[in-house]
Simulated assay, not measured.
Amino acid sequence: MSRVAKNPVTVPAGVEVKFGTDKLTVKGKNGELAFPLTADVAIELNDGQLTFAATNDSKHANAMSGTVRALVSNMVKGVAEGFEKKLQLIGVGYRAQAQGKTLNLSLGFSHPIVYEMPEGVSVQTPSQTEIVLSGADKQAVGQVAAEIRAFRSPEPYKGKGVRYVGEVVVMKETKKK
């Protein structure tokens, strides 16, 4: 059995978990998330804890039991607490401004970049060089952060660009004559 699947997922108060034969739904204060289930994984809810087990001894079922456990754990945490990614802009004239569901970026190009936020992800800009993304779906928040970072990823000589807060950019030395 998968080592990850051996650990049960504790369902906190205020989070409601429903599952049938084809999908699992988790509902909490931050929203509702759904996940399609496979026949390879058996899920049980006992005393506020979700347990996962492979239905047969195949390698695929064993792997899927750990994968489903990790995904459901992230769903429960997302609807209870939410996920957050912070980005910072390094560079002269690099600015960000949130307006509702859009993010306006000025990253040194000849044109401004207007990024539409997908459903379930919200954006805030505490300052002109900080971006805070939040939402219940860990995958969606991470994907949006990666797409914003890809507009101008940090370059290795001056470190200018969009980077995650706490990201270490290894700087190169310039060529000497």
Rank of each mutant, 00 (worst) to 15 (best):
V9A: 01
L87A: 13
S110Q: 11
G159N: 07
N74L: 15
G159H: 02
Y164T: 14
V123P: 01
A146Q: 12
F35I: 09
K77S: 15
E119C: 05
G166T: 12
R3W: 08
P112G: 12
A54H: 02
L24Q: 08
T51C: 10
R163F: 08
K177G: 15
T102H: 03
A5R: 03
V41H: 06
T38R: 05
E32W: 00
K101N: 11
V168A: 12
E84D: 05
T174C: 06
E84W: 00
S110M: 13
I148W: 08
I90H: 10
A146R: 04
N74D: 15
L89N: 04
G31W: 02
V168I: 14
F19D: 08
K18G: 13
S58L: 15
T129H: 13
S153P: 11
T125I: 02
E130R: 03
K101C: 03
S73Y: 12
F151K: 04
N56T: 15
N30M: 06
F109A: 14
A13V: 12
T125H: 04
A53L: 06
E44A: 08
K18C: 11
I131M: 09
M1V: 10
G20M: 14
M117V: 03
I131R: 00
V68W: 10
S134I: 02
L103M: 07
P154E: 10
P12C: 14
S73C: 09
V144S: 07
A63T: 09
E81A: 10
V15T: 06
E173N: 14
F151I: 11
M64Q: 15
L89G: 02
M117Y: 01
D22E: 06
L133Y: 11
G14W: 03
V165Q: 01
H60Q: 13
V4W: 02
F19N: 08
Q49E: 07
Q139Y: 12
T55M: 01
T174W: 11
N30C: 09
K176P: 04
Q128T: 07
N104D: 13
Q143A: 14
E173Y: 06
S65I: 01
V17M: 05
T38C: 08
V170M: 14
T10Y: 04
T38W: 03
P36I: 12
G78K: 01
D40F: 12
T21F: 14
R149Q: 15
E84R: 03
E116I: 03
N62E: 14
V123F: 05
F151H: 09
Q128C: 00
Y164A: 15
V79E: 10
V144T: 09
V4P: 00
T38P: 00
F52Q: 00
T38D: 12
R152S: 14
G142Q: 07
A150H: 02
V141A: 07
R149E: 13
L105N: 09
S65C: 01
M117G: 10
K101R: 10
V76C: 05
K86I: 09
V169Y: 10
R152Y: 10
L45Y: 06
E16V: 09
K101Y: 08
V4M: 01
G93Q: 00
R163S: 15
A136N: 02
N30R: 09
H111W: 05
V68T: 14
F83H: 05
S2I: 05
V26F: 00
Q99C: 04
N104P: 05
K158Y: 01
A70K: 07
A34Y: 03
L133I: 06
N62Y: 10
K29M: 06
V11S: 01
Q124M: 08
M1I: 11
